[in-house]
Computed example of a mutant assay.
Amino acid sequence: MIKLTRLNGKEFLLNALYIETVESFPDTTITLTNGHKYVALESREDVALKISQFYNEIHILSNPHIRGDQDAE
């Protein structure tokens, strides 16, 4: 989960595994795979960094099949 802030200043947690897109309209709009949308105070770049940190914390990219390694057994 990543911690984000709504435009009204309230913090919320979002499961980064379900994020499909992060866009700036100029507000940062996050669309999940189920179509739900969330608007965050953080910039698109900050959200991307939080997603990357979350993936590293849970070692999701340690699986060679997910990374796309061709020689994985």
Rank of each mutant, 00 (worst) to 15 (best):
F25V: 11
P26G: 12
I58L: 01
L61C: 04
T33L: 15
S43V: 05
L32H: 02
L7V: 07
S43A: 09
T5V: 02
K3R: 13
T21V: 10
D27H: 07
A40I: 04
A72Y: 12
S24I: 05
L32C: 03
N15E: 11
L14A: 03
N56C: 04
L4D: 04
V47K: 05
Q70H: 11
H65A: 15
G68Q: 08
L7T: 12
T5P: 04
P26M: 05
D27Q: 13
V47M: 11
T31I: 11
N34S: 13
I30F: 09
E42K: 13
D46E: 15
G35S: 09
V22D: 02
I60H: 08
L41G: 00
V39G: 00
S24E: 15
G68M: 08
L14P: 04
N63A: 01
E42S: 11
E20G: 06
I51E: 02
L61I: 03
N15Y: 06
T31R: 15
G68V: 07
R44S: 06
L4M: 10
V47H: 09
S62D: 15
E57M: 08
G35M: 06
N63W: 01
I60Q: 04
M1E: 07
I51P: 08
R67C: 01
Y18C: 03
R44A: 06
T33H: 06
T33M: 15
K50F: 02
G35Q: 12
A40T: 12
E57N: 14
L17H: 09
I30Y: 04
N8V: 02
H65Q: 13
L41I: 00
S62L: 03
L14C: 07
A40D: 08
L7Q: 13
G68N: 07
F25E: 14
H59C: 06
T28C: 15
R44Q: 12
K50L: 06
T28L: 06
H65E: 12
L32Y: 01
E45H: 10
K50I: 00
E42F: 09
E57P: 01
Y38T: 07
T29Q: 12
I2V: 04
V39S: 05
S43M: 05
V47G: 05
L13R: 07
A72F: 13
Q70E: 14
I51G: 03
P26Q: 08
Y38P: 04
A72V: 09
I19Q: 06
L49Y: 07
Y55W: 03
N15C: 10
L61D: 08
R44D: 00
V47R: 05
G35V: 08
E42C: 11
S24P: 02
A72D: 06
E20H: 10
G9L: 05
K50P: 00
K50Y: 08
K50E: 04
A48F: 10
K37C: 12
T28D: 03
I60R: 11
L7Y: 01
E57F: 02
T31V: 14
